[in-house]
Amino acid sequence: MSETKIRYICALEPEFPEKLKNIPNAPDGIYVRGCLPDPGKKTVSIIGSRNNSEYGRGAAEYFARGLAKHGVQIVSGMARGIDGISQSTALKSGGSSFGILGCGIDVVYPEENRLLYERILEKGGLISEYPPGTPPRAALFPQRNRIISALSDVLLVVEARQRSGTSITVRFALEQGRDIFAVPGRITDPLSYGCNTLIADGAGIATCPEDILEALGLIQGGRNKHRKLNLNKFSGLSETQLKIIRCLDYNPVSINEIASKTGCDLSDLMLELLKLQLLGCIENAGQGFYILKLEVNGDGSR
């Protein structure tokens, strides 16, 4: 990846992002590889836990895909977990994404996101205020978060524990006057504690990409219109298939449980589960668990 040139853009240059200029403690300049976010397009930062759940993965993919398809640029911190999932999905869905680093722009961290580091330069870019070669240090990450929030129009929190790095980014977003949305979760789930608290404190509730698209002014009509579409997806399914759908959830349910809840013959059940997967209605979460597939509204079968 060394072929892609590293540029330094100082705060006085015209190319320097407008959004970064007017924040408290604005950087003096930034190092850039690839391109900078297009100021003419809307930008959403999607952030969340490094140790996400299956639900968190599904939600991050759902929102990143839905937003990217409407030309929204996705910004995040390239970390493992929600960050990387959102950014990879945005790129896979044909959108663009920007990674804000807490280390030198030529340092790949974490190693498992190497592929993302390569892909992102084709359809987005990497940004850091630290000189090339700076190793990843925990102390630098909180400061980096103010750039993530600053670059965004909306900050979306997908999954967060009670005390986490996410809350730092949220605080910056509040200082910078950015809109905050959170994906709700179960009240018993520690990974959703942060999000549910944000919603209780007044953050927007993100139940589908349309909620955010509407806040960005990209669509009108609100969520109810789209909700109906979402339910249409299940029309045309057989009675058995609907029975299976009814006992599934966005949290994984085991095949033993599906079998005992539906009372289906096992052989039929496995055939129908496969068909539903091929129809794009449900997803295999691994180890014999299935979840409903979060789907972009009106987005065809898969």
Partner: peptide, 11 residues
């Protein structure tokens, strides 16, 4: 994993 009670996270 992958039930609700898992505290390990994907990584």
């Amino acid at each position: 994993y992958p039930g609700q009670r898992c505290t390990c996270g994907e990584t």
